[in-house]
Amino acid sequence: MRTRSAWRGAIIAIFLIYMLVPLLATLLFSFATRWDRTILPEGLSIQWWKAVMAKRAFGMTLRNSLALSLATMLASIILVAPTAYWTHLRLPKARPYVELFTILPFGIPGVVLALALIRCYARFGAAVVYSPAMLVAACMVISLPFMYRPVLNALNAADVKVLTEAAQSLGAGWFRTMTRVIVPNIMSGIASGALLVFSTVFVEFTLANLLVGARFKTFPMYLVEFTRFDGRQASALAVISFVFAWLASIGVLLAAGRSEGAREGAAGAK
């Protein structure tokens, strides 16, 4: 028994070190004054943060990424939630087809999706294929699984069919059933899905870089640019990305915590 808990402790320790050190290193690096001659940084300062945040491009790319993430998130909710509900409740026959479309993105690498969209829609002109709207649609594709699974799990967990029947037997109409019974019960699933979409799209680099390029610079693109010439300011940008990812994930956990299991199966591809 003793030896078994020892290897468990060791592997957990290695795992935690491996997961946390890069984050802490980046955080520390963004506050360090000079750190190439000594083991610990020679001093701490917020000069890099000030410098990077003073740039006009910083605010612009951050706004661009937030706008992109929010737009994708809203569009995904509008597209996926009613589809999942209708499939689950009224048309279970359609489920394999719906799931096909939500699983397909796992098998399409980002670069291949970008290439395919260019090949397909370039004939309508650069204004169409290289537009932010196309980028939103492409981001919806890669985040379809993240939106669909949690909503479906919430529908399963809430036993929506019985709830609908109960509401109808109590005399509620369609609208009342929807707003008072169904939506509140699957809200946690929708929230989980939405936050997952948000965090996925916020760090998305491949599609943005290949589809819109310099015309619509997103935060990750700005970060990659910086890694090439100023590590300190880039580390501040990376920390901001991590914070957004953490906030979204904490949101997911809080939302999923209310309906256990809504999060299950939401893990997916890069």
């Binding site: 935690l16 997961m19 050190v21 890069p22 984050l23 290193a25 980046t26 520390l28 690096f29 750190w35 190439d36 997952l196 965090s199 996925t200 760090v203 998305e204 680099f205 990750p220 970060l223 990659v224 890694t227 590590g231 880039a234 580390s235 940008l237 990376a238 990305s241 991590f242 990812a245 953490w246 994930s249 904490i250 997911v252 956990l253 999060r263 893990a267 997916g268 890069k270």
Partner: peptide
């Protein structure tokens, strides 16, 4: 929860974190 977050990390920030940590002048 940590695994959950990290699964969706990836991409540019992650790569940069590794440069900071294990690059030629990285911290580690």
């Amino acid at each position: 929860a940590l695994a959950d977050v990290a699964t969706n990390f990836g991409g540019a920030p992650l790569a940069f974190a590794f440069i900071v940590t294990l690059g030629s002048t990285g911290i580690v």
